[in-house]
Amino acid sequence: MNHIEITEKAKSIIYNDGEITFPDECCGFIYGKEEDGIRLISEAAPVHNSKEGDKKRRFEISPFDYMKAERYALEKGLELLGVYHSHPSHPAIASEHDLKVAMPFFSYVIISVYDAKTIDIKSWRLRDEERIFDEETVTISTNDSVIKK
């Protein structure tokens, strides 16, 4: 099973975004480093949910915001490792809509938010060569550094 470690700081940004955006879905990018097969997420950056229509159960990130995220990673010497979004009043289980447009390599972090309070976090990654999501184990690190000693 793949593993990602999220700093407390990045986790707080994700949780806060999900809670202030509730009952709509929030979304954003996650950045960090991958070392020895473990992803260390040091930064999370909220972006606008550009979905037109029902934002309570859908999110979309504009191509312009995506290109900015790639540029930011290059400038900061970080890797763009995935995307996060919330499931308001639903479990943090990847849905068929999440799977349909999922890209390989990316970690898809999902938080479950009920009554504007985050109750769960999970992460999913597309299995190589197949359109199946595998769950990744998630740990929260109190160390805000991405360098694992």
Binding site: E25, C27, K51, K56, R57, R58, F59, E60, I61, P63, Y66, M67, V83, H85, H87, P88, S89, H90, A94, S95, H97, D98, K100, V101, A102, M103, Y108
Partner: peptide, 12 residues
């Protein structure tokens, strides 16, 4: 030229 993947999804 930039290749930009669609980033989207949703709860249900």
């Amino acid at each position: 030229i930039s290749i930009v993947p669609a980033i989207a999804g949703g709860a249900y």
